Every structure is written in structure tokens, then in C-alpha cells.
Computed example of a mutant assay.
Amino acid sequence: MDNKKKDKVKDFFRKEGFYVALFFCLCIVATVAAVTMKSNKKVEQAKKPAQEFSLNVDNNDVSTEKQNAERVKSETETERVADATTAEDVNVAAGTTTEVKFTNPVEGTIAREFSYPKPKEMKDGSFRNIKGIDIETKVGTPVKSSAEGVVEVITNDVEEGSFIIITHANGIKTKYANLEKAILVKKGDKVTSETVIGKVGDSSKIFSNKDFGEHINIQVLNSKDEQMDPTKYFNYKA
């Protein structure tokens, strides 16, 4: 009996020993894996604050650089606006006397000086505002544009007769009155200082050639249609 029991025990260990060994091996592997995972987790936790700190530093740097860039851009745009505003101010202030170079549209001398807005006594005893200057010149004398520009108005009325208004680059306008009714340009035409726009006439009924002699009336207006002294723009002598 004893020998049989011993044989059974030996048979059991021969048959089941493999599984027992496998079980112990699995337990060892599981234990090692658990320990390794726990160790890795501690290492990752230790690294995480440093990474977060690094990311925070990078974000702050980017944010600071962005703010600096935006500030520089804003200051640059402000300077550009200031420069543009200054340029416009210079153009408006100085452009009326320097940006457009005027030439005398006809040859002649000043027969009647600019007095606007102060009224001047006429021969009949009445008082009128003298706009522009009258240049003494013969009827039929060709009249040129005083500078490059665009024909804005062509019309006729009792006081000034047939007249033309030309707008120039900086907003200043020149007006030529007491012309012949046969105007040589059309509204919208681009003209230069060499363009003949009409001829001296006798179309004014208020300031007629009979009372004031043969003449052309020349006026200068600013961009707001306010009267300017033509003697500051043309080279005429009294």
C-alpha cells in the first residue's frame, strides 16, 4: 500500500507539476509588473510639475512677445496716422500757395483790384463787392487755363457774363468771367496751362466793357468756394 501511495504521489507531481510551476511563474510576473507600473507612475508624477512649469513659461513668453508685437504695431499705426494727418494739414495749408503753380491766363495789367468782401463804389454811385481782379485786355484775346485741372462749370449770368470754373489738384479753383459765349472746352475736360479755354468777350451786363473797359475777370476760390486774393497766385501789375 505504501508503495502504491508513493507511486500515486509521484504520478501527481509528474502530471500536475507543470501547471503548478506555471502558476508560480505567472504570480512572479504579475508581481513584477505591478511593481514596475507603480514605479513608473511615481516617476511620471515627479516629471509632471516640471513639464507644466515649462509649458507655463513658454506660454508666458509667447503671450509677452505677442503683446510686444501688438504694441509695436499699434504705435507704428499711430505714427502713420499722425504722419498722414500732418501731411494733410501741410497740403491744405501750403497747397493753396505752393502745390499748384499758376501762370497768367492772358497778358495785361490790373484794371480793377480785388476788394472782397469790402464793397467798392462804382461809377454810378452803387457799392459792390469786387471778386477777383479785372485784367485789361482786348476782346478776342485767347484765354488759357492757368494750371492743370478739370473744367467744372460752364455757364452764363447777368453779372459775370459767360464764365468757366476749373478745379485744380489741391481743390483750388480758378474762375474766368466776361468771356465770349463761344466756349472752347466742355464740362469734364482735362486742361493744362497750354489749353485755350475761350476768348475775352463782352458778356457781363453789370461789369460791362462800356463801364470798365475791355477786360477779363479772374477769380481764385479755395476748396470751400471762398474768395481768395488772385494777386497772391498770379504775376500781374497794376
Rank of each mutant, 00 (worst) to 15 (best):
V185N: 07
Y233L: 12
N156V: 01
T96S: 11
A33T: 14
V200N: 06
Y236W: 09
N129T: 10
E148Y: 03
V151F: 01
N170T: 05
S126E: 08
D61T: 13
Q45K: 14
A238K: 15
G95R: 05
T85N: 04
A50I: 03
E107Y: 00
T76A: 15
P49G: 03
K120A: 12
I154W: 02
N68H: 11
A94I: 03
V90E: 04
V220I: 14
M37K: 11
T141M: 09
L221T: 00
V20W: 15
A69E: 12
V158H: 05
A82C: 01
V81F: 06
N40Q: 14
K10H: 11
R80L: 14
I135A: 10
E52S: 06
A46E: 11
F102Q: 02
K42C: 09
I135M: 05
V158C: 07
S203C: 08
F13Q: 14
H215I: 03
E152F: 00
P105H: 00
E160A: 00
K47I: 08
T231G: 09
E152H: 08
Q51P: 00
A34T: 13
G125P: 02
S223K: 04
E152A: 04
G140K: 13
V139C: 06
V200K: 09
I216S: 08
D11W: 12
K173Y: 03
V143T: 08
I130N: 08
Q67A: 13
K42N: 12
N235D: 14
D58M: 10
G161C: 02
N235Q: 11
N129M: 05
E99K: 07
D89I: 02
F13N: 12
K4T: 06
Q67D: 11
K199Q: 10
V62L: 12
F127L: 04
G161A: 01
N217A: 01
A93I: 04
I172P: 00
E113C: 06
V92L: 08
C27I: 15
P230H: 04
F13A: 14
E160R: 00
V35Y: 09
S63H: 05
T167L: 03
N170D: 06
G149C: 08
F23A: 15
N222W: 03
A169M: 03
E16G: 14
A34G: 14
N170P: 00
I216E: 02
S115H: 09
N40H: 12
F163R: 00
R128C: 04
N209I: 10
D89W: 01
F24S: 15
E194P: 01
I154Q: 02
G140V: 10
E16P: 10
N40Y: 11
I206C: 07
N68E: 09
